[in-house]
Design a binder for these strands. Structure first.
Lengths: 196, 196
DNA sequence: AACTGGATCTAACCAGTGGAAAGATAATCT
DNA sequence: AGATTATCTTTCCACTGGTTAGATCCAGTT
């Protein structure tokens, strides 16, 4: 029942397999409860093998976070390029948080991984540009971006923690559109925000 | 140099001392890194003594969360009673997150403690009433409350994680006022929101 | 084909952790 | 006083993350 018919038996793709196993484990019980040894067990190797590839547990979580930032950047970019309006970038943010909960939860717990990791830093910076709408925001854009980011980020984390009243419904994207209607960004083009 | 001249030597106040030690430990390294044994060591007792008072580690964190919710409720209540406007309740929320970071971080990591604990449940419900402005919100109030709560919650967590650009300044309360200006709540009395 | 050096993985060990159980000690009740 | 209860310690267990030494495999050179 091996996934590969005859796997190279230096596994061939351990790093990626460990990453997948880690994301799955985090998805089950949260990042704090994830254990290196369990992840390694699921991948069928000793925990030292995981340490070899990632240095240590923080290294593994750093890889999860970096992957998360890359995915987030991609989704935000897609949303922006669709040109359906500013709001849909926020919706994409919330959608990412819900659909890639494991990565999202790690990304915003910097004490669990290496924030100064080169790959993470760069992926974060790229995502920030998309969130603020420009690489060189002025004071106004900065404040407006922080407001929008705060709103969707807060909404995503409150949703994930079950802190939102169930009367709001159970579709986080729809809730995002409802809630974001209370945000008024002067510069933004609102034309697409209320289409329905 | 004992705090008490001759302490009763069944300590007298171990539970409270452990709580204080836990909050301090969390403040140093985050909730995930807190260890029962270290907390007990700091209080000068064995880790089993801590288990006796709180059941287990989750029990200790449950107590931290419950205390946090009670404190938050108190501060939100004070802000509301000051009648300086809706905005100042949000400012109080962010101020609480920053000044009681340990409690705040535990409160919104429900996988670390017992969300169904009676004390926690009640304290949470009380805080929710203050956040929505009424015990029986209609759909409009619910959505507006969720928007406001999401904004300040997102702002607080992003601030704590160092995710906000430093050009916004280093005073989280001031940043809250700046950012919250982008929020337009129809029913709310804005008269006090722009006083400066 | 044999050798070699590097990459990848395992086995074994360590200190530290949370939890449980048994018992010691102190406070309280009658 | 004696008995009961509350509080705390000791001891043990399974597990964790990290380290080290060595096994195994692979790719390139000769």
């Amino acid at each position: 029942m091996q996934p590969q018919p005859t796997r190279p038996y230096h596994h061939g793709d351990l790093r990626a397999a460990l990453l997948r196993a880690a994301v799955e484990a985090i998805g089950r019980a949260g990042p704090a409860a994830m254990s290196l040894r369990e992840v390694a067990r699921r991948a069928g190797v000793s925990h030292a093998a995981a340490a070899y590839h990632f240095g240590d547990k923080a290294g593994l979580l750093t890889a999860v976070a970096a992957q998360g930032y890359r995915m987030l950047t991609q989704e935000l970019q897609n949303a922006r390029d669709a040109r359906r309006g500013f709001l849909e970038v926020g919706v994409a943010y919330v959608r990412f948080a819900v659909s890639h909960r494991a990565q999202f939860e790690v990304m915003y717990r910097p004490e669990l991984y290496r924030l100064d990791d080169a790959e993470v830093r760069q992926a974060r910076a790229t995502a920030a540009v998309l969130l603020y709408g420009t690489a060189t925001p002025n004071a106004e854009q900065l404040a407006a971006g922080a407001a929008a980011w705060s709103l969707v980020h807060g909404l995503a984390t409150l949703w994930l923690n079950g802190n939102l009243p169930e009367q709001l419904g159970n579709d986080p994207e729809e809730i995002t559109r409802i809630v974001a209607a209370y945000l008024s960004i002067p510069g933004a083009n609102d034309s697409h925000q209320r289409r329905r």
